[in-house]
Design a protein around this nucleic acid. Sequence first.
DNA 1: TTTAGCACTCCATATCCTTGAGTGCTAAGC
DNA 2: GCTTAGCACTCAAGGATATGGAGTGCTAAA
Lengths: 356, 356
Amino acid sequence: MELTERKKKVLRSVVDLYIRTAEPVGSKAITELPDMKYSSATIRNEMADLTAMGYLEQPHTSAGRIPSAAGYRLYVDELMLDYRLSMDETKSITNAIEEKMQRVDKMVEKVAKLVSQATNLPAISAASRSGNACVQRFELIQAGQGSFILVLMLSGERVVNKLIKLPLDVGESDLKLLSAVLNATMTEIPLEGFTTELMDRMMRSAGAASSLVPVILDFTQETLKNHAATNMAVVGQSRLLGLPEYRDVDKAQRVMASIDEEALSNLPAVMQDANGTKVIVGPENVADELKDTSVVMTKFDIGDGLQGMIGVVGPTRMDYAKVTARLSYFAESLSKMFAKPETPQLPQAEQDDAGQ
Amino acid sequence: MELTERKKKVLRSVVDLYIRTAEPVGSKAITELPDMKYSSATIRNEMADLTAMGYLEQPHTSAGRIPSAAGYRLYVDELMLDYRLSMDETKSITNAIEEKMQRVDKMVEKVAKLVSQATNLPAISAASRSGNACVQRFELIQAGQGSFILVLMLSGERVVNKLIKLPLDVGESDLKLLSAVLNATMTEIPLEGFTTELMDRMMRSAGAASSLVPVILDFTQETLKNHAATNMAVVGQSRLLGLPEYRDVDKAQRVMASIDEEALSNLPAVMQDANGTKVIVGPENVADELKDTSVVMTKFDIGDGLQGMIGVVGPTRMDYAKVTARLSYFAESLSKMFAKPETPQLPQAEQDDAGQ
DNA sequence: TTTAGCACTCCATATCCTTGAGTGCTAAGC
DNA sequence: GCTTAGCACTCAAGGATATGGAGTGCTAAA
């Protein structure tokens, strides 16, 4: 059977209405739409065809139709009309973003919160560094009796430091020597290059300060290992409960538990190869608990090997047009903001921490 | 009316049973408990008295009794039997804690996750620094053409750094001079001491490198301002949905939304003056949405002016004995772990950050 | 002081019925 | 050959009504 223009129009109407009302859509409701000048019987015939073609489903004989996964897919890919953000919307998003975002982890949390607010759905935000890092320079600063600060300058303009305390005394000159040796032997070496052989060699050339070497190299390795670690935030799960499809508490719990845990590790991977905004419609999801839940995601660029991702989780019946529009705008604004060099408050190589 | 020993015993039984079953407790159920050698009629009389005294409530005439807020309070303060952690429990908690906890924020998240798992309830964890900080030493490290690294050593063994890039060239000697001046004028000064007068003086004595001063002082102030910032994590909200009292989706949503937002700012304040483990029973809660939700919290010590807090949110009918036992054990283990100087993997003054 | 017995209350659950939205099909109209 | 009016049919949702059972309070006897 052929998918005529009229069929497409009917399908679009059904999806639109279902998104709005969360109730099966009957032929009469379609008739009442402006711009729809056929009788309910005609629409009925079209809907029967669309059902046969797999784009619509019927919960039971005497109910209206709801879109099937294939129906949503077609809608998302072809049918849906672009949602245009109002001035108010763009302005409030832009305002929100332009507040200071200092550290990456705070930024990730903040962005998740904003997206969740903007879409009224649970949001996931993540940032991760791509590629391998290596140390570009070591710096040792005396900090008192038996304690010094190790500063690592990494590729990608990242700076990391650690206060090291040892029971033994180390002199200024020892530190100078040690840092010279470190810079000579251990720079520009990725994690894989840290062979026992290399570390042994390092130990031997360290001289008087050789007892510091293990501590320093341990921390260095740890840092390199964590370099690609993903920073992630999930915010606003409770918004799911406002939607009729999650009146079923068990379902809500399954979905929420799964976005808490599983998605947390899976989604960034899914995002890897995608470009632009990606929509995963219900059954296309890998995780079983998410079979009737859709996900919309976008990447954004932070620069310097840092990759960001924002996503939204919601019912299969979600307002894809609105959500994708807002998400894209977010991603765009964020990318733009990080690209602008004159903006003073970018996530700088600030650091924070703990106290012993 | 006097609260006899027998009345107390009956009350304890009612609370215990209600905690287990979430159903109103009838006189017969009490009779069937071991160690309860009265007939249902006697128990009925006692329950009638307890109801008159305000410790029990009756949803409707022909239902059993449920504890009132006052009943819970009495139970928590006097009646409840100490829950003894099994070997398995202590072991699994200890194991979980002993994994590396590097940075404070990661640690906070991790702890929240563990507590939530251990109690099967949503958990809140927070860490905050108390008191005012000041810089103990400034250190400037040349990092390339027109860029250098600012390292601040703060009170409490905290170290923070930032990569600063400027369009102008700064020489090694300029940096040396500048850091000497900074260390001479700006150390040991809390945030309040950063008067415009002082900053002006600083500017004047900085000489050739005076253009760096604003950037440096801005960052320093920002850091001091953020010093007492609370790090917080909320985990496991979805666990609420497993409980019968939150089958009512609206209620669940209200509670979840409120622990997401409000509690986030209020709880640490509540904790401030408390000592040991604190239980807030339902209606004692300030926030309206939490009127039928209880909170159990404990502080723990991280040392170096860092204070930790873990808490759990659940239905008024929660297993207070078990929850407080587990929470206290957690707090104790954490405090002990941070006190032990020989433990190698404490949240050290490690740092991490962002790109750009 | 305790307890057996009894009448009473009231919620929860099951069952039945009604209502109405929506369908598919057929036959007539354009 | 489409389109549409009409009609019989289906089925879930919601309201009304019964039924059962858990639990109570009270009284009177042990």
